[in-house]
């Protein structure tokens, strides 16, 4: 475990001594906040309309959870992840290979899975930071009186589930990005393949739904999209959690094999 912590620490130091972490967090905040702001605008417009047409029953259904936070967490932020996280993880192994610093890891008494786990956890920490940035929005809503008006208080359980879904999807993106970083020594190639792979798992549901029979069902089950809906509704669904964990485990296992293969061939 010492080794895993050592690698985790080193990766975090590199993220935070180089501009990488700051640039990514700044861009992430700007884009996510733009989405948040536009959802909020739409929300206000809708409530104004319902008021004007005197439709109180519609007004009752309008709440911040469903109209603002959920589409943000389980939808738009994940699209940002799709593109940003492969950029964060692309250097993890590809760069070490390119600059030959991998030789330190390979000649030290460290097992390949420890290398992979340490590096993976560093990217998960970055995802958790972005999750924390996203947690600011419901706090803002509360501070500026979201709970006090006609719209009812925020349902924090739903908020929490949305954030959990966001972190799980982010962690999955990182695992895929780490794997693509382990198959090449070119960072750009790693990032592009990572984005393509993630995009593939996103659109798989669309493909699966267009097909008849069990193959279509399997394909749409494999899609990441099929497993985030429960989080959007604020329901804890164990099956979906298992899906994400097995996805992550498989990607990390394959990355470990890639690192090992360097030792054997």
């Amino acid at each position: 475990m010492k080794q895993v912590m050592g690698i985790l620490n080193k990766e975090l130091k590199i993220y935070f001594t180089t501009p990488v972490a700051y640039v990514v967090f700044a861009l992430f905040t700007v884009v996510a906040s733009l989405f948040f702001w536009s959802f909020l605008q739409r929300f206000q417009m809708e409530s104004a309309q319902f008021l004007r047409y005197q439709r109180p029953e519609m007004l009752d259904q309008l709440n911040f959870n469903d109209r603002v936070l959920t589409p943000l967490y389980v939808g738009y932020v994940q699209i940002i992840f799709l593109f940003v996280l492969p950029l964060l993880t692309m250097r993890l192994i590809a760069e070490e290979r390119k600059t030959r610093t991998m030789e330190l890891l390979l000649s030290s008494p460290v097992r390949p899975w420890q290398i992979i786990l340490g590096k993976y956890l560093s990217s998960v920490v970055m995802v958790l930071c972005m999750g924390a940035i996203c947690a600011v929005y419901p706090l803002l809503l509360t501070v500026f009186g979201a709970g006090s008006g006609d719209n009812g208080p925020l349902d924090w359980a739903t908020v929490g589930m949305g954030l959990l879904g966001l972190v799980l999807v982010g962690s999955t993106c990182c695992a895929v990005g780490l794997f693509t970083s382990s198959i090449t020594d070119n960072q750009i190639v790693a990032a592009v393949i990572g984005m393509m792979a993630l995009l593939f798992f996103w659109v798989l549901r669309g493909i699966g739904q267009g097909m008849e029979g069990p193959l279509g069902e399997v394909l749409s089950y494999l899609s990441i999209l099929s497993h985030i809906e429960s989080f959007a509704r604020g329901i804890f669904n164990l099956t979906d959690c298992i899906y994400f964990f097995s996805f992550i485990t498989l990607a990390l296992f394959l990355s470990t094999r890639m690192v090992e293969s360097q030792r054997w061939t």
Binding site: M5, I7, K10, T18, L104, S108, P109
Partner: peptide, 26 residues
């Protein structure tokens, strides 16, 4: 090795702390 495996983005101390942790020295 021929090319010293050190990370340009780390300080010398951090690099040594990292290498020590790989050898289990903490």
């Amino acid at each position: 090795p021929e090319i010293p495996p050190v990370h340009p983005d780390l300080s010398v101390r951090d690099q040594l702390i990292f290498a020590a942790s790989l050898k289990g020295i903490t």
